[in-house]
């Protein structure tokens, strides 16, 4: 009972901190005060602590990782998006300003996640596999890096149109390069996700591929990413066209991870976002 209260308080504390971080990021951009955005970044980093606490307590309570209900899936996804952005912004300081897109995105995910906060279910025995952890971890990294790539693409489009805007962000060419790098990372993570899922299926059912709608959609997304990367590498596409294609990649990502599971009958549906 006490753990449940701490879990709930931690979750709402994380939501409050991310909300404040969002406000500071927007204020920093609107009033061109980089310091406010810096505080927003610090708050987002601080928000990871209660968020991690809420996730860990849920893990301990239900006895499995964050992969069974909408709350578990989306809340952990939001955590990975914010953490990935913070790590990326340490490696590439130009990405700090992308927080204005990343933190609100995490906040929206938490808003969707909270609709099943009270739902706690046991996982099927088929989840007893080391491949599952790899499959889910890379699915989250795939989505997180696609969100970050898209944040760079949006910032690129904005800065190209109004060069004086978003001063906290680097030059458009650098944003374009970051979007490409993150898309490559996303492509890798999606590949690992698909392969780990295949090996898991082979372990449990003796077939590594069954053309389940979710599997097929992941493959279509991987091929779509390959097309976009071909256009960049072979045809030297860059600039606005590539930025729009990066946003298209995000649409593919969201469709695969959320829309297919929610709409089409698939073995993935029961333990993703539908409950």
């Amino acid at each position: 009972m006490r753990d449940a209260v701490i879990q709930s308080c931690s979750f709402w504390a994380a939501v409050a901190v991310y909300a404040l971080s969002t406000v500071l990021h927007f204020a920093g951009l609107s009033f061109e005060r980089p310091r406010l955005a810096g505080w927003g970044r610090g708050l987002a980093a601080a928000g990871l602590a209660p968020h991690a606490c809420a996730l860990a307590l849920r893990w301990a309570e239900v006895g499995h990782g964050p992969w069974n209900t909408r709350y578990e899936v989306l809340s952990s996804q939001a955590f990975v998006v914010v953490a990935l952005w913070l790590v990326a912004s340490v490696l590439a300081p130009g990405l700090r300003g992308a927080g204005a897109l990343v933190v609100p995105c995490a906040l929206l995910l938490l808003g969707w996640a909270v609709s099943t906060f009270g739902l706690k279910t046991e996982v099927p025995i088929v989840f007893k596999s080391c491949w599952l952890a790899l499959h889910v971890a890379f699915a989250k990294l795939f989505a997180g890096s696609a969100v970050l790539a898209s944040a760079c693409a949006v910032a690129y489009l904005r800065k190209r149109r109004r060069p004086a805007s978003l001063r906290a962000l680097p030059r458009p060419e650098v944003l374009d390069l970051h979007a490409h790098q993150l898309l490559l990372l996303s492509f890798l993570c999606l590949g690992v996700m698909i392969v780990a899922g295949s090996l898991w299926a082979n372990q449990a059912w003796g077939r590594y591929w069954a053309w389940d709608p979710m599997e097929t959609s992941s493959l279509a997304t991987w091929i779509a990413f390959a097309v976009i990367l071909h256009l960049r590498v072979l045809h030297r596409w860059s600039g606005p066209r590539m930025a729009w294609l990066t946003l298209l990649a995000l649409a593919f990502t969201a469709t695969t991870l959320y829309a297919v599971a929610a709409v089409v009958p698939t073995i993935h549906a029961s333990y993703m976002v539908t409950q």
Binding site: A220, A224, V227, H230, V260, V263
Partner: peptide, 24 residues
């Protein structure tokens, strides 16, 4: 040619995408 590779990939991605929704 990159064009052939691109056309093939676009075809397969579209086909697989449609295939994913066919159960409905």
């Amino acid at each position: 040619s990159p064009g052939f590779a691109r056309a093939t990939l676009v075809y397969l991605a579209s086909y697989a995408g449609v295939g994913a929704w066919l159960p409905r």
